[in-house]
Amino acid sequence: MVAALRTVYGALMLVSSVACVCGNLLLLAVLLLNKELRSETTGLVVSFSVSDLALGLSALPLAAHTSLTRPSGYAGAGVFCQGSGFLFLLLLTSSIHSLTWATVDKFTEICFALSYRRIWTRGRSRAVLLAVWLFCVLNAALPLVGFGSYDYSERRYLCCPSFGPENCVFVLLWMSLGIVAPIVTTCSLYGYMVYAARKQARRGTFVCNELHCFYVPANVYLRSSVVMVATSACLLLCWTPFICVCLYETLSGQQTPPLTCALSVWLVLTSSALNSWITCMTQT
C-alpha cells in the first residue's frame, strides 16, 4: 500500500510539475510579447507567476523524485533539507500573497475605475512588491534562526516546516498571516466583484465610442462571474485540506493518515499549476 501510494503520488507530482511549468511559461511569454497587456501593476502577476514557476521547477519534481527513488528521504538537519524547506515556504507564501494583491488590483480597476490610475501608480506597485517579498523572506527565515524548524516529512516526501506542538506559535503565525488572511481577502474581493457583475447584468450597460454606442449583453458580466466563482472555488479546494491537516497536527500532536497528508500537499502544490490558467481566463 505504501509503495503504491508513493508511485501514485510521484506520478501526480510529475504531471502537476509539467502543467505548472508550461502554464506559467505561457503566461510570462504572453505578458512579455504583448505590450498591450502590460500596465503599472503587471509586476504583481509576474511575481506570482514566477513563484509558481519556481515551485514547478523545485518542490514538485523534488517530491516526485523523493517518493519514487528515495523512500528514506533526506537528513532533516542537512543543508539541502533546510534550504529546500526555506524555498518551499518562501515560494508558497509569495505565490498566495502576490495573487491576493493581483486580485486587489483587479478589484480596484473594476470598482474604482475613475481613480484607478491615481491609486495604482508605478511607485506604489513596486512598494507593494517589495513589501510582499520582504515579508515572505523574513517569514521563511524564522525557522533558520530557531523560531520554528524545518524537517523532512516522510508522509509529504518533502522538507517543509515541522508541524508539531513545539512549533505551534510559528505555524499559527504563518498560517494566519501568510495563508489564511490572503485567501480570505481574495475570496471576499471576488465575491464582491461577482455581486457587482450580477447587479450590472440586471441593469444593463451601454458602451460608447466616437462613432456609436452599443449595448453590452448581460452574459458578458455573467461569464466573468462564473470565472471568478471558479477561481475562488479552486483556491479553497486546493488550500483548505492543507490548512486543516497542518493545524490538526500542530494543535493535537497527532499525525494524519499518509493518504490524507499526501493528498493535501499535492493539492496545494497543484494550485501553482492552476494559477496561470485561471489568470489567463480572467483577462479581457
Results as ranks from 00 to 15, higher is better:
Tyr195Met: 06
Val137Lys: 02
Cys81Ile: 08
Leu62Asn: 03
Leu99Lys: 03
Cys280Thr: 10
Leu28Gln: 05
Ala64Pro: 00
Phe147His: 08
Ser153Lys: 00
Arg203Cys: 07
Pro258Tyr: 10
Glu36Pro: 09
Val45Trp: 00
Leu129Pro: 07
Arg118Lys: 13
Cys168Thr: 15
Ser264Leu: 08
Leu87Gln: 01
Leu60Ala: 06
Leu269Trp: 08
Leu99Asp: 04
Lys106Trp: 00
Val169Gly: 08
Tyr221Gly: 05
Pro182Gln: 03
Leu236Cys: 10
Phe163Tyr: 07
Ala4Val: 12
Tyr74Gly: 07
Val46Arg: 11
Gly123His: 10
Leu269Gly: 13
Ala262Thr: 02
Cys280Tyr: 09
Ala196Pro: 12
Cys187His: 10
Asn34Arg: 11
Asn275Arg: 13
Ser95Gln: 12
Phe88Trp: 13
Lys199Arg: 15
Leu5Gly: 03
Glu109Ile: 08
Leu25Arg: 05
Thr279Ser: 10
Thr7Phe: 15
Lys106Ser: 04
Lys106Asn: 02
Ser16Leu: 13
Asn167Arg: 03
Ile119Asp: 06
Asn24Tyr: 03
Tyr9His: 13
Ser224Glu: 13
Val45Lys: 01
Leu99Val: 01
Ala54Thr: 00
Gln82Asp: 00
Met193Glu: 05
Tyr221Glu: 04
Leu14Val: 04
Ser98Glu: 07
Val207Gly: 05
Leu89Gln: 15
Asp105Ser: 12
Ala59Lys: 02
Asp105Ile: 14
Ile243Arg: 04
Ser47Leu: 10
Ala262Ser: 09
Lys106Tyr: 01
Thr108Ile: 05
Tyr150Phe: 04
Ala197Asp: 15
Leu237Cys: 12
Phe80Val: 14
Gln283Cys: 08
Arg6Ala: 09
Val229Ile: 09
Ala63Trp: 00
Ser276Met: 04
Ser225Arg: 00
Cys159Thr: 13
Val132Ala: 01
Ala59Gly: 11
Leu259Val: 11
Gly23Gln: 01
Val8Phe: 15
Tyr215Val: 10
Val132Thr: 07
Ser72Lys: 03
Gly73Trp: 05
Val21Leu: 07
Pro161Met: 02
Thr100Phe: 05
Met281Gln: 05
Arg117Val: 01
Val229Ala: 11
Ala141Pro: 08
Ile179Lys: 14
Gly85Met: 00
Ser84Ala: 06
Arg118Met: 12
Leu269Tyr: 12
Ala113Cys: 12
Thr108Cys: 06
Cys238Asn: 10
Leu53Phe: 10
Ser47Pro: 02
His97Leu: 14
Ile278Arg: 11
Ser162Leu: 14
Thr186Cys: 07
Pro71Leu: 05
Arg124Glu: 05
Val30Ile: 13
Asn209Tyr: 05
Leu114Cys: 14
Pro71Glu: 07
Cys213Gly: 00
Met175Glu: 15
Gly83Cys: 08
Trp239Val: 02
Ser49Leu: 00
Tyr74Glu: 14
Thr121Lys: 02
Cys261Pro: 00
Gln283Leu: 15
Val180Ser: 03
Lys199Tyr: 12
Gly23Asn: 07
Val268Tyr: 06
Ile183Ala: 09
Ala218Met: 03
Met13Lys: 06
Pro161Val: 09
Leu55Gln: 10
Leu251Ala: 09
Asn167Phe: 06
Leu12Val: 15
Val145Pro: 09
Leu60Ile: 13
